[in-house]
């Protein structure tokens, strides 16, 4: 099968691949348009880099004495996250059962409810926060409401998809012995989906802890208010302290929650 050295052919030219070029051009176009529109200039950023770095350097030297002031606010923040995770995921639990097509067979109902859910999911947490601040006024209640809605969106999406993938066998068995809809949910559906639900709620909790720390910035309670105050007063050492304690708490909660989720799914 090996050819002799004489009759070796020349390497042919490569075929032209249009789609690769279309993508490259689209990307470059997007880049040019967005740089133009936002008037971003990297040279300007690097010219002012010392200012950026200065803030960062100050933050890197946290004001330890400020920890005493920061921690009570942090506790409030965590409480907000817990309350809203509980309420939000309980609402999501019921709602997910209503939009899972293997539980509710009426396509009109699930369709409308899913549309509403998808709309709710599009609104970012801080936006929800600023709307609720406008509605109920400054304070933790606005934050709790915002996070509740946000949790609802996160958990519903994951949870109803989990419900739809469960094994239909047990449900059929319950129907076969004459069980009604509620029996079906309690005996066939629940045991299969409960671990997923708790896992998703914990996941939402992780996100909520992160989100709740900045909600205060727009007046929705928690440590974010201190974040704003220290930044407004240029006390970057104190800002650094806040970021540090938040980081540590997030780290611990992520760790515990990940371990708990792994244990649940085993």
């Amino acid at each position: 099968m090996s050819a002799t050295d004489r009759d070796m052919l020349k390497l042919p030219k490569k075929k032209f691949k249009m789609w690769n070029w279309v993508w490259v051009i689209l990307m470059v176009l997007g880049l040019v348009l967005s740089v133009n529109n936002t008037k971003t200039s990297l040279p300007e950023f690097f010219a002012n880099f010392d200012q950026f770095a200065e803030i960062f350097v100050q933050m890197a030297q946290p004001d330890w004495s400020y920890a005493g002031t920061a921690i009570p606010y942090l506790v409030e923040t965590i409480k907000m996250a817990i309350i809203s995770t509980v309420i939000g995921s309980l609402l999501a639990f019921v709602y997910s059962l209503l939009i899972a097509r293997n539980i509710v067979h009426n396509r009109a109902i699930t369709g409308v409810l899913r549309f509403i859910m998808n709309i709710i999911r599009t609104i970012p947490d801080l936006l929800l926060g600023s709307i609720f601040v406008a509605v109920v006024g400054i304070g933790p209640v606005a934050g709790i409401l915002a996070l509740t809605v946000f949790t609802f969106g996160v958990v519903v999406k994951l949870f109803y998809e989990a419900i739809e993938t469960i094994d239909p066998g047990p449900s059929e068995a319950i129907k076969a012995v004459g069980g009604n809809g509620i029996n079906n949910i309690m005996f066939a559906v629940m045991p299969q989906i409960l671990p997923y639900f708790i896992s998703y709620a914990l996941y939402a909790f992780e996100i909520n802890v992160r989100a709740s720390t900045i909600l205060g910035y727009i007046g929705a309670g928690g440590i974010g208010l201190q974040l704003k105050n220290t930044l407004d007063m240029f006390n970057y050492n104190q800002t650094g302290m806040i970021i540090l304690v938040v980081f540590l708490v997030v780290l611990v909660i992520d760790f515990v929650s990940t371990k708990a989720r792994e244990a649940l799914m085993r």
């Binding site: 099968m1 050819a3 052919l9 390497l11 075929k15």
Partner: peptide
Amino acid sequence: DKQRTYEALQSVGMAEKVY
């Protein structure tokens, strides 16, 4: 080197798959 590559592919009978 590209030509060398192509020749190696010819030696193992895979020249038409080069691209």
